[in-house]
Design a protein around this nucleic acid. Structure first.
Lengths: 194, 194
DNA sequence: TGAGTTTTAGATCGAGCGATCTAAAATAAA
DNA sequence: TTTATTTTAGATCGCTCGATCTAAAACTCA
């Protein structure tokens, strides 16, 4: 039978995530990727196909690890608190991001999705998942009285998604706690009052 | 004396803006640029220097034409109305953007600014200009009673900047009126009430 | 008109790109 | 041990990259 693979596919995929995350799709070469992943070019093409396929795998892995994990962890938390912890996490991540890599999903939304239908659908789907999470939180919060009912839950969820994207973008150019927390403060004031 | 330039520098610069705007920095080659600008490679290097310098010129031109113009047009408008018209313009622009180019400033904030100190300063400066415009609007609105005083003007301005970035990002993947207007609606509800 | 200067057009530079190929090394089942 | 299969390592494919060079063409001023 066949010789088994000499590397851990998940481990090298995570190296690829790091590359794409910190430098983007176009700016990273397949040679850079192979070197960083610790495998040879042919092994890379064998295991992952071409550069675009590898990016797809990297994005899927990132989303599962980062977004999926967060949504799952906060699924059981009381809604108002879940939202607060969500944003607190995002802000801490953004401020601790010395390389200013931002979020691979947001980066993909700007660099890859606009020119590539498959990636646009993938990114749009994840964004809708996040929006749906926000909507569940807002609806539950409105039901238990912790979140205002004076605006439709759907619009509040949209606002939460928009603000999330805004924080992710601004943090890459102005990683400033006062700015990021200043964005969130009026949002929670709105959720709380009225 | 010298032979005069055979092309209009501003006109070809605007062609370069279109290229960088729709495809990004890395994905556009100097050959693409020269062809689209209708000049030869040597003329491009003569007139604008290298690719990075041309991008800088293109970004500056875009900012002056697009951002600067908008802030100037709305400077004399009553504050609450200025904010409303600002967002209405942004949403219409985003929905009419068939190529999903988004905003060159936001695109630069994600593709170029994180890895290039000069561009980071340029982008951060423009973002601060926009934030300052929002702050002037909010402060004036709080003074004339058209905007709530129950949150600090500085935080409301930060929220307005964050939401603007969020709209610009989301529109490139999900150019959907319901989504974009749904983000803005609770923001104005917050500005109006309380 | 002629001297002087700049812009043109097109070829070309070395480097790096994504992708593929060959052949040797490695492994598991027969 | 043999056979079959896969992964390796490294060279290499044709192409495009950003950038430069060479001359010819174009133009202004003396």
């Amino acid at each position: 039978m066949a010789r088994p693979r000499g590397f851990d596919e998940t481990a090298v995929l995570e190296k690829a995530v790091q590359c794409f995350w910190s430098r983007g799709y176009e700016a990273v070469s397949v040679r850079d990727l192979a070197a960083e992943m610790g495998i040879k070019g042919a092994s890379l093409y064998n295991a992952f196909g071409d550069k675009r396929s590898l990016y797809r795998r990297a994005l899927d892995h990132y989303v599962a690890q980062t977004v999926g994990d967060r949504l799952q962890r906060l699924a059981g938390v009381p809604p108002r608190e879940a939202l607060e912890r969500f944003y607190a996490e995002i802000i801490e991540r953004s401020l601790n991001d010395a390389e200013r890599k931002g979020c691979l999903l947001v980066n993909s939304a700007l660099e890859v999705a606009p020119h590539d239908d498959e990636f646009r659908e993938v990114v749009a789907g994840v964004l809708k998942d996040i929006e749906a999470f926000f909507l569940r939180c807002v609806t539950a919060g409105q039901a238990d009285g912790s979140i205002t009912t004076r605006q439709p839950a759907a619009d509040l969820a949209r606002l939460l998604l928009g603000v999330l994207m805004g924080i992710r973008v601004l943090a890459r150019t102005r990683p400033d706690r006062e700015l990021l927390e200043g964005i969130v403060k009026p949002v929670f004031f709105l959720l709380d009052n009225l």
